[in-house]
């Protein structure tokens, strides 16, 4: 029971790191980016390729799993995404689906369609017994890293100058621009950062979520659930939503495997119909 809760929390934290970049994209520029998972996949493949082909240790690949998708995100944002901010949601959806298709096929072409397996270092394998609860070492590692990231993000958002600018821009981009805040620079930075975080999440999650070319399609719905249920104006909303989703998903798969993902989708529809603005937000 507690083990499931623990696994669920690890899963949820992972989802949060994967999806929080999307929350910013959606909240800041009202851009529906279905291609967010492609950046996560990029991070996962960076780690897998570095470890399996060059033999870089797992931990050393993580910074690169952050940096490569971040640069990719920055380039794509500056060249393509920024042209579409003012377009309709339909255009944005079509564009990002197109990107997903391209990413899936391109990865399939370069690395093959099989699952990428990564060999965790021995000190992260296995389980230990804490107060009678079986605790996976790797999952504890994920919780520690993601927990630290959450705290860091929250501090950046609430305590730094950049954070207050970002919040101002999310609240009302026009007024923020009028006050002399360079909204497009802020957006490029956060987009790159969000993509980087997704990449890191993809690398960390390669062991738990699996990693193959269809990754962006498989997890797109999860990211969207996190964002739509959690709302986009704070970091706590998506965080709570991902924890809920993670725990519900793991528990659901364990206790009622025949029902499967059914419960989560139904819950999502119910939440969206009753509270279209998100579960943890005030109605505007």
């Amino acid at each position: 029971m507690l083990t499931i809760l623990f696994d669920g929390i690890a899963y949820g934290m992972l989802l949060f790191v994967l999806a929080c970049g999307l929350a910013v994209t959606l909240g800041l520029m009202n851009f529906v980016n279905l291609a967010h998972g492609a950046f996560a996949m990029a991070g996962g493949y960076v780690t897998a390729v570095l470890m399996n082909r060059i033999g870089v240790p797992f931990l050393a690949t993580l910074p690169l799993a952050f940096i490569v998708p971040a640069i990719l995100g920055l380039v794509l944002e500056r060249t393509l995404y920024k042209r579409l901010y003012t377009r309709s949601h339909l255009d944005q959806v079509l564009f990002s689906i197109g990107l997903v298709f391209m990413a899936v096929a391109a990865v399939d072409y370069s690395f093959g369609s099989q699952q990428q397996l990564i060999q965790l270092p021995t000190w992260l394998q296995g389980r230990i017994d804490i107060l009678g609860v079986q605790v996976g070492l790797y999952r504890s590692f994920i919780i520690v890293i993601c927990g630290a990231l959450v705290v860091a993000l929250q501090l950046i958002l609430t305590k730094t100058r950049f954070g207050s600018r970002l919040r101002a821009a999310v609240d009302d981009p026009r007024v923020a621009r009028g006050l002399g805040i360079n909204v497009s620079l802020i957006f490029a930075t956060t987009f790159a950062f969000g993509s980087g975080l997704a990449g890191l999440g993809g690398a960390l999650g390669a062991e738990i979520l699996g990693l193959d070319p269809t990754f962006p399609l498989k997890f797109m719905i999860y990211f969207l659930i996190v964002v739509t249920v959690g709302g986009t104006t704070s970091i706590t909303g998506p965080f709570l939503a991902s924890l809920l989703l993670g725990i519900a998903d793991v528990a659901g798969k364990y206790y009622v495997p025949s029902v499967g993902a059914f419960v989560i989708y139904t819950l999502m529809i119910v939440v969206l119909v009753l509270r279209p603005q998100g579960l943890f937000e005030r109605a505007r």
Binding site: S88, L90, A261, F262, Y265
Partner: peptide, 28 residues
Amino acid sequence: FLVLRGSDLTKLMVTLGVALVLGEIANQ
């Protein structure tokens, strides 16, 4: 009645959700 409310994104998610639920049902 589910797609009458909410923004484009909500409609998108709700329609997607309905299709996924149906897919799950057909699978199970």
